[in-house]
Design a protein around this nucleic acid. Sequence first.
DNA 1: TGTCGAATTTAGATCGTTCTAAATAGGAAT
DNA 2: ATTCCTATTTAGAACGATCTAAATTCGACA
Lengths: 341, 341
Amino acid sequence: MAGGVGMKRNRVTLDQVAKAAGVSRATVSLVVRKSSLVADRTRDRVEQVMADLDYVRDIGAARLRNNSSRTVGVVVPNLLNPFFTEFLSGAEQVLGQGDRVVLLANSHDDTHLQSQILQRFRGHGVDGLILCPAAGTDPALLTRVRDWGLPVVQSMREVGDRLTDYAGGDYIQGVRLAVRHLVEGGYRRIAFLSVRARTSARAERLQGFDLALAETGATNAGIIETELTWEASVAAAREILTGGPTAILCFNDVLAAGLMVGLRHEGCTPGRDVAVVGLDDLEMAQMVWPPLTSVAMHPTRIGASAARLLMRRLAEPDAPVLRDRIDPHLMIRSSSRNEKV
Amino acid sequence: MAGGVGMKRNRVTLDQVAKAAGVSRATVSLVVRKSSLVADRTRDRVEQVMADLDYVRDIGAARLRNNSSRTVGVVVPNLLNPFFTEFLSGAEQVLGQGDRVVLLANSHDDTHLQSQILQRFRGHGVDGLILCPAAGTDPALLTRVRDWGLPVVQSMREVGDRLTDYAGGDYIQGVRLAVRHLVEGGYRRIAFLSVRARTSARAERLQGFDLALAETGATNAGIIETELTWEASVAAAREILTGGPTAILCFNDVLAAGLMVGLRHEGCTPGRDVAVVGLDDLEMAQMVWPPLTSVAMHPTRIGASAARLLMRRLAEPDAPVLRDRIDPHLMIRSSSRNEKV
DNA sequence: TGTCGAATTTAGATCGTTCTAAATAGGAAT
DNA sequence: ATTCCTATTTAGAACGATCTAAATTCGACA
């Protein structure tokens, strides 16, 4: 007891339980795995002993034999972006309920680091992978992972052939919702504040933007590219105003929030002089001023879906490939209401 | 190749590498562990073979023998709160650089779930634990974890005797910075918007508030308790105004942001009619309107510090217990500038 | 050439579990 | 009492690494 100097290792093992219960190690193992082979009387006795000795099954040792670690690797490109942490939250919850544990890593959108992470996860014997691929990920990476025999679900972003399960938001649809809403409100010169990084997330939104403009007959008032940071979008305000837009659609809420601050610096009041619409509908959309119209993409649900897709594939490795797109939902607030604020 | 149906397991093992390189398994093991015992020529040859065969060391199997999983469990009470995800981000980064992997779990501030999580982590053989204890955690839990022989670092919150390492922000100091700033700005009737949950985080802030009032001679205009959600704090605005405060200090930025919206509903313009100050200085503090004065607590740094403390303890289990308090820093913005906005 | 010590390599046991294949128990039927 | 089931239990070999203790190699030196 006392000070705890040099705490020696003392793990309770199956053998110790077996000895104390007067049965064989194999029997205890069966009890642990809730096999129906063992007699009720025996099971009760063994379970009692396990409780008394505070036995904890060593999952690593088990995996060595049965090849299932009850562990899933999750790779996100950014842990400071609420969009990804909400995603993570949804995935963690579902996996936890499935009695699995999340190995987490942040690729910082760096493909080299991402490779290291995957090797590390492989070394740890993860059962499967939920991957939000870093920008610029080589499609060959996915093939490689499959060759390792490691089930993958891609999420939020997608690279390569469509041979892996996928869960994501439907940004094409989301952007269309936003544009239609603007057009219905009488805004017809619409600019788009985008990002430079060539991810599928970006491609999808731009595709939706083109589509929506064509559908509604609205005018493209310019597509401006910036870094994916709040500060950068503050600075982007001046440039985007040169196109003379009556409304500005933004890559996400963070950029929209920054843009609104930048607009004010330029003497332009968001919501009154120009409409602003974000994407993602993070909690912050309600907090900024004016409250920001945004398209809810439900990242938590996407994360939960990705987790479910993975657990399904672990259960049936040869099930057909599935793609789950979560439906977006328009949240109208003052920033696009065409009224004085 | 082809379709990948029923992908059989094919792990490259030490034995296979050994055979291919014409040495013994033990030698290859030494190479893997970068031992200086092996001759340069041999090492080169073995490393070449490892690369050719795409050998990946099985860390689980290694742990079984040498008892080190290079794995750390991180438990946070909330993955939707940016404060904790920034914390997580800092910890993940440092641990990753130390070639360790994060097992993540969200306790949802539920002590029962928290116990389950710890058992799960124990089963996975984590080397150590970074724990932000759930509200209401029994101090005995920490003793128990220590009895398991599992090194723990507490962070953000703390329970029990002070026998574990700890990393956190200094909220006493943070609150004092805020109050002094308000008093210097001429605000002397100060209310505090607090939370109901009895965490050490709450106790610390209240302690700082008392202290700061005593130091500055300012007046306590009431302490209101609410749930830790944005919506709840919107609703708290009315109640807190009954004390007739000239300034309101908030438990954190989320509550401050909600409060400002609520204040407006009550016909009271934050920054003009009443000063508002938050704690934590999350990115959102700049985004709300008016920009929110807040005290930066640097959660990312706290997370990094917690990770470093844990790695230190893993390296030297008997090092003296350390407590790291990250210094807070006041960020003055319009919400407390005593000017027209 | 033979001996010694340092440098290098290795066989075999071991970590805690699960799997396989076989052994044992306990009845019911003969 | 024997036989034949089915229901339960078990011994012992994996899994892939590391550790211990001992064996081998090699050059230097007598």
